[in-house]
């Protein structure tokens, strides 16, 4: 239980970190700061991936979200708002609707999980192992193995993979076209 305790410590710490930053993202007054908090949320999620043994996914999360999307958001903010100057009202009037919708959804979701999880195995979703041992084991497990993910992507999931790449190209070109056409006006 020793290793399991360490795991749980990591899990709760990362969860708290992620949720705290997420709340700051949706409630902060300064859009620029919100974006920076979002970056921390992404890092937290990457850590949670690591805890599940999803090494590749953690790396991808860090690279794309933390490195790419956050940068993109910061650029968008800088291109569309005076960041440092005036503070704009970020929260609209429909706060009560939003809160009620969120709480309602949370309740529904928890109920579902309660119903569904009752039929699940005991230690569902938890790895009880020392971190070092866990890491050593995980590198041999197929689910943690970067090589296994790569092989799967290029064999079993080759067609979706290629479609994804096409989608990315289309998205990039489309974004350029949209931004340029709008600018040309």
């Amino acid at each position: 239980m020793n290793g399991g305790a360490v795991w749980w410590v990591f899990f709760y710490a990362l969860s708290a970190f992620t949720l705290f930053n997420a709340l700051l993202v949706v409630t902060g007054k300064n859009l620029f700061k919100c974006a920076l908090h979002l970056m921390l949320v992404f890092l937290g999620v990457a850590g949670l991936f690591l805890l599940q043994g999803a090494f590749l996914l953690a790396g991808v999360q860090t690279l794309i979200y933390t490195g790419g999307v956050t940068t993109l958001i910061l650029f968008a903010i800088m291109l569309s708002e005076e960041v440092v100057g005036r503070q704009r009202q970020l929260v609209s009037r429909g706060v009560s609707i939003g809160i009620s919708a969120a709480i309602c959804f949370l309740g529904i979701a928890l109920t579902i999980f309660g119903t569904a999880v009752a039929q699940l195995p005991e230690n569902y979703g938890v790895h009880i192992a020392p971190v070092a041992q866990f890491v050593a084991e995980a590198s041999h497990l197929p689910m943690g193995n970067v090589r296994a993910v790569g092989v799967a992507l290029l064999t079993q999931f080759l067609v979706p993979f290629e479609f994804a790449s096409v989608l990315l190209v289309v998205a990039v070109i489309g974004a350029i076209v949209i931004a340029r056409l709008a600018g040309g006006k």
Partner: peptide, 29 residues
């Protein structure tokens, strides 16, 4: 179970952000 609760919470926070924010960038966040 813990992961599911965590993700549900995160999801709800996201919904809250989408619904309450007026700024399009914030909604995307």
């Amino acid at each position: 179970m813990h992961y599911l609760v965590l993700s549900a919470l995160l999801f709800s926070i996201g919904i809250y952000g989408v619904l309450t924010r007026r700024n399009a960038i914030a909604i995307l966040m």
